[in-house]
Design a protein around this nucleic acid. Structure first.
Lengths: 343, 343
DNA sequence: CTGAAAGCGCTTACAG
DNA sequence: CTGAAAGCGCTTACAG
């Protein structure tokens, strides 16, 4: 029946007071070693678990880190969460996860609910719809440590952890050029998200570096889902003006590209090479296997949690904004490997 | 700066006491309509939010439903969670999600942590490794409503929500037989999980109904991941004794089957038809598209949450164990559609 | 219909 | 080094 054991129970059995027990448990410097030992031993024996709710009410600290992601079902985000959890648990924090389902309104509602829940820290990857960030302002005002990962708001002065998306797209384009492609199209997401903006910039600069001037009709915005990637590809095919390669800013989009090209009898990579972003599990399920930029999601999560925990151990004055960018890793697979065919 | 507003602030401004404010907020029958109206109005005006932590400490109720799943990255589980969240939020509960990563030890650690967190209710889908359920016993003893979904423990007397896996496998086999298959192999998971046991039983009974006696070497246990599904398929190919069809008890396994068969130059579905379970997003990414049993995951989640909330509104005596089985839905796609080729 | 008081299980400034 | 007391923000049995 596991009767609840409180510090009063411990105090009574040890002929001392709750104050002393509480201090001993916290390893307070002014409690004698002997008393600490006695308290610890009895706590162990009675399987005493401090009540986190009471602690929270008293101290205002909840030991909870909240995470908001667009969707947990995306491998990328699931894996970031795993990284956050790992570091959080090691440091005595628990993690609660919410999903915005890519909707601004839902994200706002979650933020409001979390505000009420008095979480200690917050890690966020914003929804595709989000362009206004005022729902995060109350956390910043209250001094709640907050970090954005992957999908970070450019205009906000907050800590950010991301992959170097500019560099990633740059490398992807150079890889395609090395395969003999010159006319490279780019399917991207909303330019309001810096991840997509940076990828677009990296794409353009890499092209220009190699003397290729990307045309306006080589670029498709908001073509990041399976459906929109498919749609864009249909338009490309209909135009009759086919590229050498398509760089999609996401794997779902890239899958849409591949399926649509195949259906139209266009060979991949021979006619058109395809590269995606995120290195999702299913990239190797498809034929040909999809070349994709790995974003080292777990690392992103671990680093995000580390930043939050560091800040939790600092006074608001000591805290400083961190901007961390990880180098990308291009996973080269058959969908972009023209070269090997001519080896 | 959003100074915290308490019921004392409300009471003072209304010239009444915290007791009355508290009761008015709860719509207590013995408070006058007029007082309720005044309290509500001021609460609205000052944007009063009752402190959930204080409520929790006082009442022992946290308004939190915890969910434990093997992994959030599986589409199936992500979608169940969405269903749970939807119903929970509507009823004023919040949801916290934990993942066992398919490990018994992790699941046990999570259960222990949750016990301490004093959640109100628990929804669980057990890990592949779990065969002992004693870590859930403390919740049952305490009277915490608990429901298992999809992966349910057979031996425990608790509420369960699942798909009729027996029927699902039965239908899948009859579909394959209708396509002209007779020698049908079955790749399954650990027999300790009832989902797999029931699928195996449905497979066997459907075979026997049609006068086919499944041989022992037609059945592979623990071949449920991409890797193990691949491994089993290699063994099948090596044996030289090829089946007409393979029914895999999961989509990851089925993908392993398809990729391996294709690599060996075996045609799908012409030589071997393939059927999976779970209707994952990527089923339509693969060539040929994978026939799979849809488990109506969101519905499972909604129903699980409804059961918990019903029980939360009942006294422990009123509560009764519910067993709900949903009918399966076979999503027929090219990987099993031999018939159309001969139409 | 409303109020005064106790208490949920902790922590911590104050005092010694 | 240890203790007595107050308080975090609520709810509710008891009293009127």
């Amino acid at each position: 029946m596991a009767e609840k054991v409180t510090i009063y129970d411990l105090a009574k059995q040890l002929n001392t007071t709750a104050s002393t027990v509480s201090r001993a448990l916290q390893n307070h410097p002014r409690i004698s070693k002997k008393m600490k030992a006695r308290v610890m031993e009895l706590a162990e024996k009675l399987n005493f678990q401090p009540d986190p709710v009471a602690m929270h009410l008293r101290t205002g600290r909840s030991s909870v880190i909240a995470v908001i992601v667009p969707r947990v079902s995306r491998n990328f985000f699931a894996s970031v969460i795993t990284g956050i959890e790992q570091v959080a648990y090691q440091n005595g924090y628990s993690v609660i996860i919410s999903q915005s389902n890519e909707q601004y309104e839902t994200e706002k509602a979650i933020a409001k609910a979390l505000l009420n829940k008095k979480i200690d820290a917050l890690a966020v990857s914003i929804s595709a719809e989000t362009t206004d960030y005022s729902h995060f302002q109350p956390f910043i005002n209250k001094g709640t440590p907050i970090v954005f990962f992957d999908r970070v708001p450019e205009s906000l002065n907050v800590s950010k952890v991301e992959v170097d998306n500019y560099e990633a797209a740059f490398q992807a384009v150079e890889h395609l050029i090395a395969q003999g492609c010159r006319k490279i199209y780019h399917l991207s997401g909303p330019m309001t998200l810096s991840v997509y903006k940076n990828r677009m910039q990296g794409y353009q600069d890499a092209m220009k570096k190699h003397g290729i001037e990307p045309q306006e009709n080589w670029f498709y915005q908001n073509a990041i889902t399976l459906e929109t990637g498919t749609e864009a590809t249909k338009q490309i095919i209909q135009s009759g003006d086919l590229p050498d390669a398509i760089l999609a800013a996401g794997d779902f989009s890239a899958i849409g590209v591949i399926l649509t090209l195949k259906k139209a009898g266009i060979r991949i990579p021979d006619d058109i090479a395809v590269v995606g972003f995120a290195n999702e599990t299913f990239d190797i399920f498809i034929d040909p296997e999809l070349t994709s930029v790995d974003l080292d999601s777990q690392q992103l999560g671990e680093t995000s949690a580390e930043i939050l925990i560091e800040q939790l151990n600092q006074t608001p004055e000591e805290r400083e904004e961190k901007h961390i960018k990880f180098p990308p890793k291009l996973m080269i697979r058959d969908s972009s490997l023209k070269a090997k065919k001519y080896d």
